[in-house]
Computed example of a mutant assay.
Amino acid sequence: MTFLDHLEELRWHMIRSFASIFILAVVAFLSKDIVFHQIILGPSRTDFWTYQTLCKIGTWLNSDVLCIDSLPFEIQSRQMTGQFTMHITSSLVVGLILAFPYAFWEFWRFISPALYTKERNASRGAVFFVSILFIAGVLFGYYIVSPLSINFLTNYTLDPSIKNQIDITSYISTLSMLVLSCAIMFQMPVVVYFLSQAGLVTPERMIYFRRHAFIVILVLSAILTPPDVMSQLLIALPLTILYQISIYVSRMVLKRKLKSEEIQKYQ
């Protein structure tokens, strides 16, 4: 294929990817009651699944400390076009999240023919694992990080006379940032896998820089989350676990490469 043929092929992959995002965004836009009342505004109410589960755990432990009885804030729209604009923006975000597995599959369909057979075999299942980790990150950000962050931030007061009247733009932006940040950060094992395949990362190097990585994880958590310690720790903890898993992934890749080299040596 010529360079222009490659561009034409890429163009159609991008068209199909953006079309899937647009279609699902339209579906989300038309499903306003479900998307907003049930999903987006869910963490702003005390009947949310996370708060109810924490209360059940507290009851099991004979303690009411974990029960969240109130979230002292109101969500407002202070701009004339605020609600309509956020309706469109949030629908696009929901469409992106729902269409991500298909969009990544389209991207992978364009990339994979350029790989050698050995590279294609080594990257088999990439779409599946990327999609699973992305969904896991979204669920973790939505059900764990977001509600606990919202609870902390709305209950944090400088003075009882100050009322929390939060703009809808601020609320949705914070929620989207937390969810998408977790989704992206959960891709760490996949990134390490491909870097290990390229020889840029080794398990020994990752173990040597583990302390440095922990500091970087804390800094990233502080940047990506609201300014509260609880949210930072909630992102830092799974990232630390994922880093440890990535070490095992890199070690597995190294063993596989050494085994392949031994087989080729004796052939």
Rank of each mutant, 00 (worst) to 15 (best):
Y248P: 06
D228V: 10
I247A: 08
Q232M: 15
Y243R: 03
P227V: 11
D228N: 14
M230R: 12
I217A: 04
D228S: 11
S246C: 09
P227C: 11
T240E: 04
I247W: 08
L237G: 00
T225L: 06
I235F: 13
V216C: 00
L242V: 08
S231I: 05
L242E: 02
L237P: 00
L218I: 14
I215R: 12
I223Q: 02
S246T: 10
L237I: 15
Y243T: 02
L239D: 00
S246L: 10
A236Y: 09
A222F: 04
I245K: 03
I245R: 03
L224E: 02
L239S: 08
L224A: 12
V229D: 01
T225F: 06
S246A: 13
L224Q: 03
Y248E: 14
L237C: 13
L239G: 00
I215K: 07
A222Q: 09
I241E: 02
M230T: 15
I241Y: 08
L218Q: 09
L234F: 11
T240M: 13
I215F: 14
Q244Y: 14
I247K: 05
S246W: 13
L218E: 03
L239W: 06
Q244N: 13
V229P: 01
V216F: 01
T240L: 14
T225K: 10
Y248T: 14
L224I: 12
S246E: 10
V216M: 03
S221I: 05
I215V: 15
V216L: 07
I245Y: 12
A236D: 01
A236V: 04
Y243A: 05
I245F: 14
L242C: 04
L234W: 07
I223W: 07
T225D: 07
P227H: 11
Q232C: 09
V229T: 14
L218A: 13
V216T: 00
V229G: 05
